[in-house]
Write a protein that binds this DNA or RNA. Structure first.
Lengths: 215, 215
DNA sequence: TAGATTGTTAATCGATTAACAATC
DNA sequence: TAGATTGTTAATCGATTAACAATC
């Protein structure tokens, strides 16, 4: 039996794609039809070879001397990133961070829709934030199951995160995007993507430090 | 002249450290004095060897048979991540996302303080969000210079991002944490850390997909 | 002591960079 | 055609994983 081609995608590549996309949108807005990997790389401070490798890995093809067709490339990235499809999410925790995520325009623009919010606080029950209704936490598992939601966002304090995760898993999510600092215990079949904004900030800081004190 | 030891830190390591920290805090709360790399790894679904390597790279030492001293390890991570120091930031764009970042409790807990917000909208002028005052955009460069701010957060729409970045650089920031999707053009000495939340979401999605269709 | 666990050295793996032939 | 740019194959680099000796 032939092995599935094992569609290999690398996480660094995925992280760079939004940059390429922004760059291409910019070019498209100026009516540019074709763009070279060198030009893209120049805008983003990257190696042109890396750009070509990334694009090749997602199935884009360019033409020697000409470069890559802008419209075509936008379409390929959009397809690969799944920005055409619509994916529904739910969010637990509608405090500051949760409310911001509910209103974050990047999600709908990229095909992600938060269909419901959940919060422990009874004051928020029935309230609508950015057009999304908030329900009591007890209803979460049931709603996840009924709507076949696959991904849940956790934006509750660290102390409550494990319990919330358990309820999400009971409902049937397969992936959790965890904005709390808690280290979640989940069954192997469930995937947790940890998001720690302070880590990003520290990386930036350390890079500044490196700049200041070169070896 | 001796080379500076070229303190090598790897970005993946930095991304994992908050997880270790959370795990250690949990252990500390239970009164556990020492913990093995295997235990930490088990909680976070990682390889114990990787945990040891990470800890070694930031200068932590354990003892055979015993493991790592919890309190000591917490201190080493805190020191390495710079969570003890206080670092001041400013933010441009006080809309949904900006306001959320201004209220994000993870920052003060980790020694980051947003000292001022800036927004184009005159309605917001003088308004205080989460205790942080908002100023008109025109005052940004001057305030950055006066307070010697080194890092600026950009949470404005993509279209306005470049102009805002230029003003930050005029003021003298050395690092920009860019939450907009715009590909910023900056001088070589300025470092941009791009944050694209939808990229994280796509990575989670792709991992779910991989789970479903194993080769 | 015996066994568990660290610390270190080597092997593997994957991502980035380089070299260069193919081609429009 | 000549030159620029892609696509591909090889080399390098860094991070992860493995093996094992040191040690409490």
């Amino acid at each position: 039996m032939a092995l599935t081609p094992d569609r290999r995608f690398s996480i660094p590549t995925i992280r760079r794609l939004p940059g390429y996309y922004a760059c291409l949108e910019h070019a498209a807005a100026q009516g540019i039809a074709a763009i070279s990997s060198t030009t893209i790389a120049g805008h983003l401070n990257l190696d042109p070879i890396m750009v070509r490798k990334d694009l090749e890995s997602i199935g884009a093809a360019g033409r020697p001397k000409i470069g890559f067709n802008v419209a075509e490339l936008l379409a390929v990235i959009k397809e690969f990133m799944g920005w055409g499809r619509l994916d529904e999410l739910i969010i637990a925790g509608c405090g500051d961070l949760g409310a911001a995520l509910m209103g974050y325009k990047g999600f709908p623009r990229r095909g992600f829709r938060i269909v419901a919010g959940f919060d422990r606080d009874p004051v928020l029950e029935g309230v609508t934030i950015h057009g999304i209704q908030i329900f009591p936490m007890e209803k979460m598992a049931n709603l996840i199951a009924r709507l076949h939601i696959e991904i849940g966002l956790i934006a509750v304090p660290a102390k409550a995160a494990q319990q919330v995760a358990d309820q999400m898993i009971t409902g049937g999510v397969r992936g959790i995007w965890n904005f709390s600092s808690a280290a979640l215990k989940v069954p192997a079949r469930v995937i947790v993507q940890q998001e720690d904004l302070t880590a990003s900030l520290v990386i930036l800081q350390k890079n500044l430090l490196k700049e200041t004190v070169p070896s």
